[in-house]
């Protein structure tokens, strides 16, 4: 007998379950129902809730009226933090007018040497101030991971109350489930040495959200 049959057999023996008592149907029903459990109620302005929680996680936020304001906001952030004016981005952002704001933008997956990565997000979660990104041919996860600075473009309409709503949206995607779903809650951190919080363990030192209101 294979290890698989052994383990499953041991489980069935231990649980002393008879066949045909409707268990399989109940399991299938549970898997299909996607029932919600009790959870905190996120009431009021989702954007305000997201902002409060994201700032608490050391994510910084800049607001712009519409998507055309993104390049100037990126340029302002880079110069404020004395970062190089060059970055890589996801291809959907390549069409913005980066040149007139002095940003040298390349639409390609980040490499080890890139200092700044600019991405969009799939949605954001108000409950915890978290960004949710999906992997894909045009949305490589490395761009939010390898550079020391990650800038994320978030539309206010993409903010959902909690993880449960994010899953509902995800299930509507054509290639669901994607290879990778990454939830990002602020800059990379560690407290392994003497329980002292330090940013930039392996991932970005800085996470900056550009919140587009239109």
């Amino acid at each position: 007998m294979s290890a698989r049959e052994n383990i499953l057999g041991r489980i069935r023996t231990s649980l002393r379950r008879a066949d045909g008592d409707g268990v399989a149907e109940r399991v299938r029903a549970h898997l299909g129902a996607h029932a919600l459990s009790p959870r905190p109620q996120i009431t009021g302005d989702l954007g305000a809730h997201f902002r409060e929680k994201a700032l608490a996680l050391s994510t910084s936020i800049a607001d712009v009226a519409d998507v055309h304001g993104v390049p100037s906001a990126v340029a302002a952030y880079l110069s404020l933090n004395q970062l190089p004016m060059g970055a890589v981005c996801w291809s959907a952002l390549a069409g913005l007018d980066w040149v007139s704001h002095g940003v040298v933008m390349e639409a390609r997956p980040a490499r080890e040497s890139d200092k700044v990565g600019v991405t969009e997000v799939f949605c954001a979660i108000a409950e915890t101030g978290t960004l949710m990104t999906l992997s894909g041919a045009d949305t490589p996860p490395v761009t939010s991971l390898l550079p020391e600075t990650h800038i994320a473009v978030l539309h206010a309409s993409q903010i959902v109350p909690a993880m449960e709503e994010a899953w509902q949206h995800l299930r509507e995607m054509p290639d669901y489930p994607p290879r990778a779903v990454n939830f990002i809650s602020g800059p990379s951190r560690t407290a392994d040495i003497e329980q002292t919080l330090t940013f930039g363990a392996h991932g970005p030192y800085r996470v900056h959200v550009i919140l587009v209101h239109s």
Partner: peptide, 20 residues
């Protein structure tokens, strides 16, 4: 409240993916 990263991975890289 939440850890910095929660990574959910499903299968190997897909056609067209540049990482994974």
């Amino acid at each position: 409240t939440i850890t910095n990263y929660i990574s959910v991975t499903t299968g190997p890289r897909r056609a067209g993916d540049t990482d994974g």
